[in-house]
């Protein structure tokens, strides 16, 4: 895994003509954004954050997608436990 990451960083740096440190910086920013959005969605689904506030942070599309997924997963688990 570590070797694969190094190879990819090198390849991206060469292809984009960037120093490897800039590639790491962008990767960190993107990864952090994903983790932040996961946290916002989790807090919304757990009732700790209002819908409008969640939409403000991650956008309507992501909130609506999470709501659809929540309905599907709840339906599936409930069926699995009782079928």
């Amino acid at each position: 895994m570590a070797a694969e990451i190094s190879d990819r960083v090198r390849e991206i740096a060469e292809a984009r003509d960037l120093p490897e440190s800039a590639v790491f910086e962008r990767a960190l920013e993107r990864g952090l954004e994903d983790l932040w959005e996961d946290l916002v969605v989790a807090r919304y689904l757990d009732g700790e954050l209002g819908r409008e506030e969640a939409i403000e942070h991650v956008g309507r599309t992501k909130v609506e997608r999470a709501e659809r997924e929540r309905d599907v997963v709840e339906e599936d688990v409930d069926w699995g436990l009782n079928a």
Partner: peptide, 17 residues
């Protein structure tokens, strides 16, 4: 593709059985 928080919610439902 499924959001992590949604899966965790599904896992908690296992405990509610």
């Amino acid at each position: 593709f499924v959001t992590e928080a949604v899966v965790e919610r599904g896992i908690r439902m296992l405990d509610e059985q």
